[in-house]
């Protein structure tokens, strides 16, 4: 039918060229859009990666600074320092004869010191980051389909 029509009404060359060009352009535009999206996503990912690296570096710096301050604080409160300050304030170590002992009803002795817990190990991998930063298109589609099936 189409052939017949074509035979019946031959199209002008310019019309055919425009059609061919526009269809090619359509593909080019589609490719450009997909390419741009891909580039944008990758750029965002790289940017986020750089931010993560910077934040981790900053976290390390802060941890180092915190450890350094803790060490400085400990140095300022060593028994030697405290002893010197107490002596400077006019105190002296109490002898057995200078201490009075009283029985205090209901006295609860202080609980023993418990050291802070060190940080727990975290698994290798993406950790707490959103999967959007790490999953592939296929993984995203699979996740989306599963989510669609599950939701009512």
């Amino acid at each position: 039918m189409r052939n017949r029509r074509r035979h019946a009404q031959p199209q002008a060359q310019w019309r055919l060229r425009i059609r061919a060009t526009s269809s090619t352009l359509l593909w080019v535009v589609a490719l450009l859009i997909v390419g741009s999206m891909y580039l944008a996503v990758n750029a965002k990912l790289a940017q986020a990666g750089r931010q993560v690296i910077n934040l981790e570096r900053r976290k390390d710096e802060l941890l180092r600074a915190n450890a350094s301050l803790a060490a400085q604080l400990a140095e300022l409160t060593t028994p030697e320092q405290m002893w010197a300050r107490a002596v400077a304030l006019g105190f002296h170590p109490a002898g057995p004869a200078e201490v009075e002992y009283l029985k205090v009803e209901g006295y609860v002795p202080p609980t023993p010191f418990v050291a802070p817990r060190p940080p727990a190990a975290s698994p290798r991998g993406p950790g707490a980051l959103s999967p959007a930063y790490t999953e592939t298109l296929g993984e995203w589609l699979a996740r989306w389909m599963v989510a669609t099936e599950v939701s009512p």
């Binding site: 790289a46 986020a48 990666g49 993560v52 802070p116 060190p118 707490a128 930063y133």
Partner: peptide, 21 residues
């Protein structure tokens, strides 16, 4: 770790040493 492009991935915490009293 990937450097080109930088990966968006958190640094894992290795098993830490214990604190002693």
């Amino acid at each position: 770790r990937s450097s080109l492009p930088p990966e968006a991935r958190l640094e894992p915490n290795p098993p830490a040493g214990v604190n002693l009293v």
